[in-house]
């Protein structure tokens, strides 16, 4: 009832590895991932949940790590782009992004990959329209959307 202002211990699984962390209530998940766990895949960009560059998955669900308290991840599984490949084997989405040339400057790529991964877990065979709907709020400043959508559709087609 009195609440907490001092750091508390949270237990979470990050990219398959269990970890206990001391975090303050006001710590943002993005800062904990980047500065404490040294996972730099999620990027701080708009800082207002508009762009998608900081997207990570919490129990499979896409969230903006820039506007998410780290304490909310207590007891949950966090997936960042660093956890997408299996060892040296790329995730099918990563392979498809390479094959389609869907990476330009690369700043949005980790968010795009994780958003696509969340979508494919929910909808195995999305239509092009569903892909576009799900990607709303995932911005590519190089405007390379055509190839990003192409890559995601290619993975969706193989699942069909």
């Amino acid at each position: 009832m009195d609440g907490a202002r001092s750091p508390e211990t949270i237990h979470l699984v990050v990219n398959g590895r269990a970890c206990d962390l001391e975090v303050a209530p006001h710590a943002l998940l993005l800062d904990v991932l980047r500065d404490v766990l040294d996972l730099k895949g999620a990027k701080r960009s708009c800082d207002t949940q508009v762009c998608g560059a900081c997207t990570v998955l919490i129990d499979g669900m896409a969230v903006s790590a820039c506007t998410y308290l780290a304490v909310e991840a207590d007891g949950r599984a966090v997936l960042t782009v660093e956890g997408l490949a299996e060892g040296e084997t790329l995730h099918p989405l990563q392979r498809a992004f390479l094959d389609a040339g869907a990476v330009q400057c690369g700043f949005c790529t980790s968010g795009m990959l994780l958003t696509a991964r969340a979508m494919l877990a929910e909808t195995t065979a999305p239509s092009r329209q569903e892909v576009l709907h799900y990607l709303r709020g995932s911005l590519c400043r190089c405007t390379g959307y055509r190839k990003i959508v192409e890559a995601i559709m290619a993975v969706a087609e193989t699942a069909r």
Binding site: T55, A62, V63, G137
Partner: peptide
């Protein structure tokens, strides 16, 4: 509403 990340949270 907004985008999927906002809708999730």
């Amino acid at each position: 509403v907004a985008n999927v990340r906002v809708r999730n949270v």
